[in-house]
Nucleic acid binder design. Structure first.
Lengths: 230, 230
DNA sequence: TGTACATCAGTGAACGCGCGTTCACTGATGTAC
DNA sequence: TGTACATCAGTGAACGCGCGTTCACTGATGTAC
């Protein structure tokens, strides 16, 4: 909120030129401006070169020194939002006690809560742009490796997926989960969590359960964790 | 395919004027053209008034006699694609035998298969436009009523959701499902199916399971159906 | 049977707008001598 | 310590494009008398 207001203020008066050697700061400011636009309008369609330039307070052609085109900006946005998502998941994991089932549920709840609290940012992670981004992903920063089925997959969601699979693995090791294929279980859980965020965002009028309860309902059966008698 | 080719041919030569009293036929042709654009480009962003007019073979202003604006066209597209989806689900249900679990799995597999085979059409069903469409939904044709938790909900996906809940209810009645709240179970299953279609479309490079097997993995636990020893 | 007329189903030109992209440029800041 | 110069971090004007929307219009078809 305060960040967004600072952004608006910067847009009103023209921004001050960066000192020498600080040119890279504008790169970060452009990404921040694109995120602010996405949050304010609710869609990444608002990220046009000219709109971003207005938001930052620079002339439109100045962007070319930092990004090749609009898609390059959106890709940088995706990278940064994935970092935020991972931070949120880790915070959720750390907020839980040592019990692996509680940790799994806390991490998954953090994922869903992040998606519901930041619908526009979450949507851009899995937007159509994502596809072309994944295709030309070699020149993009850190594509963490992850290998389900022995087949190596690199991608921007890989690190978050790795956290999920590790949390399920801990449940298997503790005897809480009966899964014999943690990657497969992780895929199922991820699909359900993504569906929950996506549908809930699209159909807000539907009477959805509370996030924590909904996550329990989805994750425990899909991770093959037998429910306590409660 | 043949339909699409007919559409392209119509776009090349100007279409023949409708006979008197047949003006409503252009309304349908405009919706068909919008769907053809969505399928060809992969996104509903391609549905502009001028692009649709070109596709149909008419002048752009002619659309105003049939639709108030672009969103009205997209809403009509959503209505027609939901009809197609429901037809596909019913075909899946009918292709299965009398066993309610097999019927549920066949219906859910049909849902996922439709989504994977028609990614652009499926995406428009749950696009952002959907939200504004749902808000101003009173003047749109048949919003089938459905009431989870006694609270009435009307919406374009309600009929498909009703099919899903009925299929789960049949499993409860036969003793195959232990669910005590079919609406809640239906919500969980729907979320998982939607997530499967959505993520699989966005991340085609990930090594996904076969649809029928994936549907089993997701639906049986979420519908509280104990798996046979196999 | 003829004819004037209303209606239907559109057309064509024009407008202003925001967009991506190009081009030549500017002015402050550091650096070599 | 002074000064010429290279570089950095941008600017401003202009282009052509597709878009939504308006306006006055056209020409075939049915209908009343």
């Amino acid at each position: 909120m305060t960040d967004s207001q600072g952004m608006r203020a910067a847009a009103r008066s023209r921004r001050q030129r960066n000192a020498r050697g600080q040119g890279a700061r504008l790169t970060e400011d452009i990404v921040s401006a694109a995120i602010a636009l996405i949050e304010r309008t609710g869609t990444d369609e608002a990220v046009t070169l000219r709109a971003v330039a207005r938001e930052v307070g620079i002339a439109a052609p100045s962007i070319y020194a930092h990004f090749a085109d609009r898609d390059a900006i959106v890709m940088a946005v995706i990278g940064r939002v994935f970092d935020e998502l991972i931070t949120a998941i880790e915070a959720g994991l750390n907020s839980a006690g040592p019990d692996p089932v509680n940790r799994l549920l806390a991490g998954c709840t953090a994922y869903v809560t992040f998606g519901l609290a930041n619908p526009a940012k979450y949507a851009v992670l899995f937007s159509e742009r994502r596809i072309s981004a994944a295709m030309a992903a070699e020149n993009y920063p850190p594509p963490t490796e992850f290998s389900p089925d022995g087949q190596p997959v690199s991608g921007l969601g890989a690190e978050a997926f790795g956290l999920l699979v590790a949390a399920i693995k801990a449940c298997v090791d503790s005897g809480a989960s009966a899964s014999t294929d943690v990657t497969s279980a992780g895929t199922a859980v991820w699909v359900a969590l993504h569906g929950a965020v996506s549908l809930q965002t699209t159909l807000p009028l539907y009477p959805w359960p509370e996030p924590a309860q909904f996550v329990r309902q989805l994750v425990l059966p899909l991770a093959m964790i037998s429910q306590p008698a409660r």
